[in-house]
Nucleic acid binder design. Structure first.
Lengths: 102, 102
DNA sequence: CGGCATCCTTCTGGATACTG
DNA sequence: CAGTATCCAGAAGGATGCCG
């Protein structure tokens, strides 16, 4: 089932928040994402970023600064997820009203 | 973050597949869904259906047959998820080609 | 048939410390 | 700064059996 292929990529607690962070800011460093995504640990961020890179949704770029900084960026392909994430966000907003009433 | 509200509802390994099964067939019995969604256990199906009912995405209807049958159906509200699921399916299909090449 | 209860395994992810 | 390594708790989920 095709949906499953998509959900696999977005699975876990953090992927969508990470994508949102990188997407919204165009380029984003590791520690920036760590701040954007409240509550995530560096271990999880590292792991999720690796997953996203494997799935060709983001690129990793090591800058030759002292100390090193690493920039992440959505690929063109990763950007194709944007409309879906927007739709999810819309639906989530509506859902909150329906269920939680806030 | 609104996306999180949506993902909460769709979290876990099975929800989207279950919704798809019910959605595609309009009305669907417990054991039918059990067959549609390959690999799910009755325990999980039971639990996930409960979650979906709590979130007002599906209705549960006990038919007075012998033995009992139970029909599940998407609510109007649940149907609003269809376009998102379709989009996810589309994207998943494309993704499979990009990553797995099949 | 449509579950619920129980047990058990696996996976997820948090905390902390350490490295180049 | 950007990770990696380790340890560990809790959640998710599978297998099986029972029950109205």
């Amino acid at each position: 089932m095709a949906v499953h292929d998509a959900m696999d990529v977005l699975s876990g607690k953090w992927k969508i928040a990470i994508i949102s962070s990188v997407c919204y800011n165009n380029k984003r460093r590791f520690s920036d994402i760590l701040n954007d995504v409240g509550g995530i640990s560096n271990k999880m961020l590292s792991k999720e970023l690796k997953d996203l890179e494997i799935n060709k949704l983001i690129t990793r770029n090591v800058l030759d600064t002292q100390p090193i900084t690493v920039q992440y960026q959505l690929t063109e392909y990763g950007l194709t997820l944007k409309s879906i994430i927007d739709k999810l966000a819309d639906w989530g907003t509506g859902h909150r009203k329906v269920i939680i009433g806030k």
